[in-house]
Amino acid sequence: MKELLILISKDILKNRTIIAFAILLFCITWSVFILEDSNEKALHTLGNLVLMVVPLISILFSTIYIYNSTEFIELLVSQPLKRKSIWMSLFAGINVSMIFALFVSIFLPILFYSPTYLGFLIMLLAIFLSAVFISLGFLSSILFKDKARGIGFSMILWLFFALIFDGLILFFLFQFSDYPIEKPMTVIAALNPIDVSRILLLTEMDNEALMGYTGALFQKQFGSIYGKMIIVCILVLWVFIPYYFSLIKFSNKDI
């Protein structure tokens, strides 16, 4: 298990895609800190970037990596190894490498320029979001045997959580604007891992003042320690549930 984890992490860190991703993100982060006139503003921009880019890269990378490792997984399965350990090592390995890439590209500039509470929060959310979307990537790569379909499904998942979900919320808000829909909608939005991260960032960035009643509602629901624990729980569930389903599927898969 440990050997396998090290092996996979090493393999991924040598992967060109992840290196390119890290370099690109590093350049963006660094230039954001240099170009924005205050570090706090840079953190705002960075927060938005993390919310958008990290999920996309994580889900695509993990999906593609699993498909590209089909033969290697085959080799591993024929060895005296538990299937669960194989899948877990893959999951942990991708996560570790992703965190490493994020560390180099985003965390280092944050630590250098703005080692504030908000900065640490962004780092934490980056780790969580990458884990959530790696987990979703595992699920879609195990659901579809065909690589193109699997990657397509991953893209759709990302689009759904990053874009379509919010569109639907807006639609419902207007459709049912005569009803007290605000509170249930806040809860529904909290079910989307990207939205819940965004809401957490918003409550911490002192934006709730801008947001009037909705902001007050956010603050009430998620501003407290209790609310933050709920957010963390939601994110943990989002990491765990898709991964768990993929694990069951993998344990019974014919390879």
């Binding site: 919010d166 569109g167 939005a189």
Partner: peptide, 14 residues
């Protein structure tokens, strides 16, 4: 028109 739409503040969709 709909203050609850603040829910989507800073989202990609918006």
């Amino acid at each position: 028109k709909n203050n609850a739409a603040m829910l989507l503040f800073r989202s990609l969709f918006i």
